[in-house]
Amino acid sequence: MKDIIKIDNLCKSFGDVKAVQNLRFRVKEGELFAFLGVNGAGKSTTINIMCGQLLKDSGNIEIDGQNLEHNLEEIKNSLGVVFQNSVLDSALSVYDNLQCRAALYGITGAAFKERLLKLAKLLEFEDLLKRTVEKLSGGQRRRIDIARALINNPKILILDEPTTGLDPQTRKTLWNVISMLRKNENMTVFLTTHYMEEAAEADYVVIIDSGKISAEGTPLELKNTYTGDFITLYGVDEAMVKTFGVEYEALRDGYRLFVPNTAKATELIIKYPDVFFDYEITKGKMDDVFLNVTGKKLEGEQ
C-alpha cells in the first residue's frame, strides 16, 4: 500500500503557543487512520493545514502524491471533510445543500444528479431530498453531512469527531457506510474521535499531546506496549487467586486478574491448569492506552 498522506517535520505556532511540533507520520491508502488527542492537542491545526486553511511554519506535506505548497487545488479535489459541527444551510433543502456543494467542485447538471442518486441510495436519504435541513433529525443531518463530504468522490475522507452527540444506532449506521466505502472504493479515512471503541477499529493510530506525537502504531501494538492483559477467571475462590501473586479485582461471579502481557497470562495458565477451566483473556482497551500515554482522559469517552 502506498502512502497517501506524508507529513514530515510539520510545525505551527500561534504566537508563543506551539500548536504542532515536528509532526511526522504516514497514512496508507485505503486505511482507517485514527488521530487522537485531547482538545488543544493540535489535531484541528493539523487538519486545517492539510486542507489549506492554515499556513504551516515549516515542514512538508504530501497528499496523494501532490505537494501541499504547490498543488493545493488538486489536493482539495481529493479531500472530503466532515466537521464535528454540521455546516449545512439549515434553511435550504437537502437537494439545494448538495447541489451547492457539488457546484464548488464543478459538478453540475447531469453529473450532479448521477452522483446525488448514488449517494442518496448509499446513505439512504432518497426520501429526504426535498426536506429542509432544519427539519431533519440529528442522525439524518449527519448522513447529509457525510454525503456533502463525499459529493466530489474524494480519495481521502477526513472525519473530525463525526459521531459526537449521535445515538448508538446512528453511529453504527454511519460506520457501516464508511466501512462499505473503504471496502468498495478503497477510500482512506482520517479520523479524529473521542470514542475509543472507534479508534480501536483503526488500522493505525497516532496519539498527539501538546502538538507532539506521544505514541503511534496499530491498536494491537499500542495495547501491547501501553497496557497489560486481563484474565477473567470464573469458579475459583479468592484464596486461590491470591496465590497467583498478581493484582486482581473481584467481580460478581469471578475475578479479573491484571497481567503485564499475554506471555505472563500463558505462564499462569500453564502453571495452574486445574484452576483455569473457565476463563477469558482480553487485551487492555484503547482508553487505557490513551490514559497511559498522555495521562489524560478524552472528553466524551464512554
Binding site: C51, G52, Q53, E73, K76, N77, L79, V81, F83, N85, V87, D89, R101, L104, Y105, G106, N152
Partner: peptide
C-alpha cells in the same frame, strides 16, 4: 460566524 466559510474554502472554489 458559523464556520460555513471554512467549509466552502476547503473546496477548490
Amino acid at each position: 460566524a458559523n464556520g460555513t466559510i471554512k467549509d466552502l474554502r476547503i473546496s477548490p472554489v
